[in-house]
Amino acid sequence: MRRAIGLLEVKNITKGILVADAMLKAANVDLILSQPMCPGKYIVMVGGDVGAVKSSVQSGKNVGGTENIVDEFVLPNIHGDVFRALSGCTEVTQINSLGIIESYSVASAIVAADAAAKTAVVQLLEVRLARGMGGKALVSLTGEVGAVKAAIRAGCQIIQDSGFLVDQLVIAAPHHSLHQSLF
Protein backbone atom coordinates (compact mmCIF):
# COMPACT_ATOMS: atom_id res chain seq x y z
CA MET A 1 0.00 0.00 0.00
CA ARG A 2 1.33 3.42 -0.96
CA ARG A 3 0.87 6.68 0.87
CA ALA A 4 -1.38 9.24 -0.74
CA ILE A 5 -2.76 12.69 -0.11
CA GLY A 6 -6.13 14.08 -1.04
CA LEU A 7 -7.54 17.60 -0.99
CA LEU A 8 -10.90 19.25 -1.30
CA GLU A 9 -11.11 22.99 -1.99
CA VAL A 10 -14.51 24.24 -0.85
CA LYS A 11 -16.29 27.49 -1.78
CA ASN A 12 -17.08 28.53 1.79
CA ILE A 13 -15.78 28.10 5.31
CA THR A 14 -18.77 26.52 7.04
CA LYS A 15 -19.15 23.85 4.34
CA GLY A 16 -15.38 23.36 4.51
CA ILE A 17 -15.48 22.56 8.21
CA LEU A 18 -18.38 20.17 7.62
CA VAL A 19 -16.41 18.52 4.81
CA ALA A 20 -13.32 18.18 7.03
CA ASP A 21 -15.34 16.43 9.72
CA ALA A 22 -16.89 14.04 7.21
CA MET A 23 -13.53 13.25 5.62
CA LEU A 24 -11.96 12.39 8.97
CA LYS A 25 -14.91 10.23 10.03
CA ALA A 26 -15.07 8.35 6.72
CA ALA A 27 -11.67 6.65 6.74
CA ASN A 28 -8.45 6.13 8.65
CA VAL A 29 -6.61 9.21 7.37
CA ASP A 30 -4.36 11.84 8.92
CA LEU A 31 -5.40 15.49 8.79
CA ILE A 32 -2.58 17.43 7.11
CA LEU A 33 -4.28 20.78 6.59
CA SER A 34 -7.69 22.25 7.35
CA GLN A 35 -8.02 26.02 7.07
CA PRO A 36 -9.68 28.98 5.40
CA MET A 37 -8.03 30.55 2.36
CA CYS A 38 -8.61 33.70 0.35
CA PRO A 39 -11.27 34.69 -0.74
CA GLY A 40 -13.27 32.80 1.88
CA LYS A 41 -12.56 29.33 0.52
CA TYR A 42 -11.63 26.40 2.76
CA ILE A 43 -9.19 23.59 2.06
CA VAL A 44 -8.93 20.19 3.66
CA MET A 45 -5.92 17.92 2.99
CA VAL A 46 -5.65 14.38 4.31
CA GLY A 47 -3.02 11.67 3.98
CA GLY A 48 -2.93 7.91 4.32
CA ASP A 49 -3.26 4.77 2.29
CA VAL A 50 -4.60 5.26 -1.23
CA GLY A 51 -7.94 3.57 -0.60
CA ALA A 52 -8.56 5.45 2.63
CA VAL A 53 -7.73 8.80 1.03
CA LYS A 54 -10.03 8.11 -1.94
CA SER A 55 -12.84 7.15 0.42
CA SER A 56 -12.26 10.23 2.57
CA VAL A 57 -12.31 12.62 -0.40
CA GLN A 58 -15.45 11.01 -1.81
CA SER A 59 -17.22 11.31 1.54
CA GLY A 60 -16.22 14.97 1.77
CA LYS A 61 -17.62 15.60 -1.72
CA ASN A 62 -20.86 13.84 -0.85
CA VAL A 63 -21.37 15.89 2.32
CA GLY A 64 -20.23 19.20 0.83
CA GLY A 65 -22.16 18.85 -2.39
CA THR A 66 -20.46 19.07 -5.77
CA GLU A 67 -21.81 22.61 -6.23
CA ASN A 68 -19.60 23.71 -3.31
CA ILE A 69 -16.38 22.03 -4.45
CA VAL A 70 -13.96 24.33 -6.29
CA ASP A 71 -11.34 21.68 -7.02
CA GLU A 72 -10.02 18.39 -5.71
CA PHE A 73 -7.36 15.72 -6.08
CA VAL A 74 -6.08 12.41 -4.85
CA LEU A 75 -2.36 11.94 -5.46
CA PRO A 76 -1.31 8.35 -4.79
CA ASN A 77 2.45 8.87 -4.85
CA ILE A 78 3.26 12.53 -4.21
CA HIS A 79 6.80 13.80 -4.75
CA GLY A 80 8.52 14.45 -1.41
CA ASP A 81 9.59 17.98 -2.32
CA VAL A 82 5.96 19.12 -2.47
CA PHE A 83 5.60 19.03 1.33
CA ARG A 84 8.68 21.22 1.88
CA ALA A 85 7.43 23.67 -0.76
CA LEU A 86 3.97 23.78 0.83
CA SER A 87 5.37 24.54 4.27
CA GLY A 88 7.88 27.10 3.00
CA CYS A 89 10.77 25.05 4.40
CA THR A 90 12.81 24.87 1.20
CA GLU A 91 16.19 26.47 1.75
CA VAL A 92 16.89 28.70 -1.23
CA THR A 93 20.59 29.29 -1.72
CA GLN A 94 20.68 30.01 -5.42
CA ILE A 95 18.21 30.42 -8.25
CA ASN A 96 19.61 29.32 -11.60
CA SER A 97 16.55 29.80 -13.74
CA LEU A 98 13.14 30.54 -12.29
CA GLY A 99 9.86 28.93 -13.24
CA ILE A 100 6.43 29.95 -11.97
CA ILE A 101 2.94 28.53 -12.53
CA GLU A 102 -0.05 30.64 -11.48
CA SER A 103 -3.39 28.92 -10.90
CA TYR A 104 -6.93 29.84 -9.90
CA SER A 105 -7.11 26.89 -7.50
CA VAL A 106 -5.04 25.55 -4.63
CA ALA A 107 -5.62 21.93 -5.64
CA SER A 108 -4.45 22.44 -9.22
CA ALA A 109 -1.28 24.21 -8.04
CA ILE A 110 -0.33 21.28 -5.82
CA VAL A 111 -1.00 18.81 -8.65
CA ALA A 112 1.09 20.99 -10.99
CA ALA A 113 3.95 21.12 -8.46
CA ASP A 114 3.90 17.33 -8.14
CA ALA A 115 3.95 16.85 -11.93
CA ALA A 116 6.74 19.41 -12.36
CA ALA A 117 8.92 17.80 -9.68
CA LYS A 118 8.42 14.34 -11.20
CA THR A 119 9.23 15.51 -14.75
CA ALA A 120 12.67 17.08 -14.43
CA VAL A 121 15.53 17.65 -12.02
CA VAL A 122 14.31 20.87 -10.42
CA GLN A 123 14.02 22.21 -6.90
CA LEU A 124 10.55 23.24 -5.83
CA LEU A 125 10.90 26.54 -4.03
CA GLU A 126 7.38 27.24 -2.85
CA VAL A 127 3.76 26.32 -3.36
CA ARG A 128 1.97 29.47 -2.17
CA LEU A 129 -1.66 28.79 -1.35
CA ALA A 130 -4.18 31.57 -1.96
CA ARG A 131 -3.24 33.72 1.02
CA GLY A 132 -3.54 37.37 0.08
CA MET A 133 -3.74 36.55 -3.63
CA GLY A 134 -7.46 36.56 -4.30
CA GLY A 135 -7.72 32.78 -4.21
CA LYS A 136 -4.89 32.13 -6.65
CA ALA A 137 -1.96 29.82 -5.96
CA LEU A 138 1.64 29.85 -7.20
CA VAL A 139 4.25 27.18 -7.80
CA SER A 140 7.86 28.33 -8.05
CA LEU A 141 10.88 26.22 -8.89
CA THR A 142 14.49 26.48 -9.99
CA GLY A 143 17.10 24.44 -11.85
CA GLU A 144 18.86 24.41 -15.18
CA VAL A 145 16.85 26.29 -17.80
CA GLY A 146 15.98 23.20 -19.87
CA ALA A 147 14.78 21.30 -16.82
CA VAL A 148 12.75 24.29 -15.62
CA LYS A 149 11.09 24.64 -19.03
CA ALA A 150 10.20 20.92 -19.07
CA ALA A 151 8.87 21.02 -15.50
CA ILE A 152 6.76 24.13 -16.13
CA ARG A 153 5.38 22.63 -19.34
CA ALA A 154 4.40 19.42 -17.48
CA GLY A 155 2.82 21.32 -14.58
CA CYS A 156 0.82 23.54 -16.91
CA GLN A 157 -0.29 20.62 -19.07
CA ILE A 158 -1.74 18.81 -16.08
CA ILE A 159 -4.03 21.74 -15.14
CA GLN A 160 -4.63 23.47 -18.48
CA ASP A 161 -7.75 21.50 -19.41
CA SER A 162 -9.41 22.31 -16.06
CA GLY A 163 -9.46 26.02 -16.88
CA PHE A 164 -7.55 26.86 -13.68
CA LEU A 165 -4.28 27.87 -15.37
CA VAL A 166 -3.74 31.64 -15.13
CA ASP A 167 -0.21 31.97 -16.52
CA GLN A 168 3.30 30.57 -16.47
CA LEU A 169 6.76 32.03 -16.63
CA VAL A 170 10.38 30.95 -17.10
CA ILE A 171 13.24 33.40 -16.57
CA ALA A 172 16.57 31.91 -17.65
CA ALA A 173 18.76 34.05 -15.40
CA PRO A 174 16.77 36.17 -12.92
CA HIS A 175 18.48 39.18 -11.35
CA HIS A 176 19.87 38.45 -7.86
CA SER A 177 17.72 41.19 -6.32
CA LEU A 178 14.62 39.40 -7.55
CA HIS A 179 15.70 36.33 -5.57
CA GLN A 180 15.85 38.39 -2.39
CA SER A 181 12.40 39.90 -2.92
CA LEU A 182 10.69 36.60 -3.74
CA PHE A 183 12.11 34.25 -1.11
Results as ranks from 00 to 15, higher is better:
Asn62Ser: 09
Asp49Lys: 13
Val53Met: 13
Ala22Tyr: 09
Ile78Trp: 03
Leu86Pro: 08
Val53Asp: 10
Pro76Glu: 04
Val46Leu: 14
Ala26Arg: 09
Ile17Ser: 11
Ala52Thr: 08
Ser59Leu: 13
Leu31Asp: 15
Asn62Glu: 12
Pro36Cys: 04
Ile13Ser: 03
Val50Thr: 09
Ala85Lys: 00
Cys38Ile: 06
Arg84Ala: 06
Ile17Trp: 07
Lys25Gln: 15
Tyr42Gly: 03
Leu24Trp: 12
Leu75Asn: 03
Ala26Pro: 09
Ala20His: 11
Val57Met: 03
Tyr42Val: 03
Gln58Val: 06
Ser34Val: 09
Ile43Arg: 13
Cys38Lys: 06
Val82Asp: 01
Leu24His: 13
Gly40Glu: 07
Asn68Lys: 05
Ala27Pro: 07
Phe73Ser: 02
Asp71Trp: 01
Lys25Tyr: 15
Asn77Tyr: 04
Gln58Lys: 06
Val57Trp: 04
Ser34Leu: 11
Ser87Ile: 09
Gly65Tyr: 05
Asp81Thr: 00
Val46Glu: 14
Leu31Phe: 11
Ala27Trp: 12
Phe73Lys: 01
Gly64Val: 09
Asp81Gly: 00
Leu18Lys: 13
Ser56Arg: 10
Val70Ala: 04
Asn28Gly: 08
Gly51Ser: 08
Asp49Ile: 08
Gly60Cys: 06
Thr66Cys: 01
Arg84Phe: 03
Gly64Asn: 09
Val44Arg: 13
Asn68Ser: 08
Ser55Trp: 04
Leu31Gln: 11
Gly48Ala: 10
Met23Pro: 07
Val29Glu: 11
His79Ser: 01
Val46Lys: 15
Ile78Lys: 04
His79Pro: 05
Val19Tyr: 06
Ala20Ser: 12
Val63Ala: 15
Ser59Trp: 12
Gly48His: 11
Tyr42Cys: 02
Val53Trp: 10
Ala20Pro: 10
Lys15Leu: 15
Asn77Glu: 01
Val70Ile: 07
Asn62Leu: 15
Leu24Tyr: 13
Pro39Arg: 07
Pro36Trp: 04
Ile69Val: 05
Val46Tyr: 14
Lys41Val: 02
Tyr42Phe: 06
Ile43Ser: 12
His79Gln: 02
Val57Pro: 06
Asn12Met: 07
Met37Leu: 07
Leu18His: 11
Ala85Glu: 01
Ile17Ala: 13
Thr66Ile: 05
Val74Asn: 06
Gly16Ala: 02
Val82Arg: 00
Gly16Met: 04
Glu72Ala: 05
Asp21Met: 12
Val74Arg: 01
Val50Phe: 05
Ile13Asn: 05
Ile13Tyr: 04
Ile78Gly: 05
Gly64Phe: 13
Gly60Ser: 07
Val70Leu: 05
Asp49Ser: 14
Thr66Asp: 02
Pro76Ala: 02
Val63Gly: 14
Val70Pro: 04
Pro76Trp: 02
Gly80Val: 00
Glu67His: 03
Cys38Asp: 07
Asp81Ile: 00
Leu75Gly: 03
Gly40Ser: 04
Leu86Lys: 06
Asp81Asn: 00
Val74Thr: 05
Gln58His: 06
Val63Met: 11
Pro36His: 03
Met23Gly: 09
Ile13Lys: 08
Ile43Leu: 11
Met45Leu: 13
Lys15Gly: 12
Ala22Asn: 12
Asn77Gln: 02
Gly51Arg: 00
Gly51Asp: 07
Arg84Tyr: 02
Gly47Ile: 11
Ala85Cys: 03
Val57Lys: 07
Met45Thr: 15
Ile17Leu: 10
Gln35Arg: 08
Ser34Ala: 12
Ile78Thr: 06
Ser59Ala: 14
Ile43Pro: 13
